[in-house]
Design a protein around this nucleic acid. Structure first.
Ligand code: MN
Ligand code: MN
Ligand code: ZN
Ligand code: ZN
Lengths: 133, 133
DNA sequence: CTCCTTGTGATAATTGTTTTCAACAGTAAG
DNA sequence: CTTACTGTTGAAAACAATTATCACAAGGAG
């Protein structure tokens, strides 16, 4: 059950790392296609799934939206703009969020996901403009 | 711009309250159909969206899964089982999660969503059994 | 009543993702 | 080298959730 680093897999990983962002499968597909024109979107989805299964990348599942992928493995949360859906990293110190380590309803806790929502500076300006008129 | 309480709307709201749970649009559709056999799933989606827009219900967007709707308006978070996807309420006191009230990357913060994941007691037992064999 | 808005059910379309499958490539024996 | 096995691929179809479209019905306002 060891992972073979195929060309496609490597390319996908490289492009994700290069971008430094939080890309969707199809954004990544567009980038990879530049170098591998015959690759299919299914292959991109497939490999993103595999890579996140083996913890080489992180899968971000922002509520009700398209999945995004992150090559940064360090523990961090995200903030996203409710207007334009931009996503940015958010450093939250561990002690800002303290959770019951176990035994909430008898659950064994495996993780937590914190999403902070807001309006990004750009969208604030945009909104301010529209209001003036 | 006031909300008219149509029969369908009322029925959907009543059934959601009655259930006390966290239902998906189609679970609710099945329930409402018992009383209104001609209602369509689109109407259920439409009205759930409208009802949550005017804050008569809450829309729960659990990562990577189908939206669920909650008739409880009080501020509370949720825990869900990564095995069976059961969702339960989680009371987290405000001071267990303290966030930058504003100015994370210049964002105006509008909210936060906290998801705690774990394995529910039922699934723990199930897993324990499978391991024995 | 007429005009205007809102809500409706049926259906089609769209979106994001997963599955299927035949062809292909890498590895390990025999 | 042949054989068998395994994982991977691209293309296409299937899929589930959601949203858009449309023609019609119901409810006021004037
Ligand atoms: Mn990140
Ligand atoms: Mn709840
Ligand atoms: Zn924005
Ligand atoms: Zn469970």
């Amino acid at each position: 059950m060891q992972l073979r680093m195929t060309n496609q897999r490597e390319m996908i990983l490289r492009e994700l790392k290069k971008s430094k962002g939080h890309l969707t499968a199809d954004e990544l597909y567009e980038r990879v296609k530049k170098f591998m024109p015959r690759i299919s979107l299914a292959t991109v989805y497939r490999n993103l799934e595999i890579l996140s299964d083996v913890n080489m990348i992180r899968k971000l599942e922002i509520s009700g939206r398209q999945k995004r992928f992150d090559s940064e493995l360090e523990d961090h949360d995200h903030i996203y703009c409710v207007e334009c859906h931009r996503i940015e990293n958010l450093e939250i110190s561990k002690n800002q969020v303290e959770l019951p380590v176990e035994d909430a309803h008898g659950y064994t806790i495996t993780g937590r996901r914190l999403e902070v929502t807001g309006v990004c500076p750009r969208c604030q300006k945009k909104i301010a403009k529209t209001k003036k008129q």
